[in-house]
């Protein structure tokens, strides 16, 4: 199956690959996986006091579409507020990358990852004294 140019671009030059310090109270981590293909994805965001995402990093072990979906998403969320980022839908990712129907689940994985990262940072902030062990 041929990948679209946009998927290939993100696959060959993934943006924002790496990791942020999970112990940082401003960092939210989303760990998700797709059992059917064995893909695992880690998406992290660093959120400032105003709720704006200052930095985003990801690491994805999976197919080109999963890598491209998470790469694109890190580009999109930077500079957005977490509330705004939570509104990103997988369909927007799939449309931007031109994902075929069989690869839609890769964009769903990316949406799940950002949601998990946002809820992680919110949880940390709600219980900042408890979680700092």
């Amino acid at each position: 199956m041929a990948y679209s140019d946009k998927v290939l671009d993100h696959y060959e030059n993934p943006r924002n690959v790496g990791r942020l310090d999970d112990k940082d109270q401003d960092v939210g981590t989303g760990m998700v996986g797709a059992p059917a293909c064995g893909d695992v994805m880690r998406l992290q965001i660093k959120v400032n006091k105003e709720g704006v995402i200052e930095d985003a990093k990801f690491k994805t072990y999976g197919c080109g579409s999963a890598i491209a979906s998470s790469s694109l998403l890190t580009e999109w969320v930077k500079g957005r507020t977490i509330d705004d980022a939570a509104k990103i839908r997988n369909t927007e990712i799939a449309q931007e990358l031109g994902l075929p129907p069989v690869k839609i689940h890769c964009s769903v994985l990316a949406e799940d990852a950002i949601k998990a990262a946002i809820s992680d940072v919110k949880k940390k902030r709600g219980e900042s004294t408890e979680t700092a062990q």
């Binding site: 760990m31 998700v32 996986g33 059992p35 695992v40 880690r42 690491k59 072990y61």
Partner: peptide, 10 residues
């Protein structure tokens, strides 16, 4: 999916 399991897979 258990988060600890995913972390370990990663």
């Amino acid at each position: 999916l258990d988060e600890g399991f995913l972390l370990q897979q990663m």
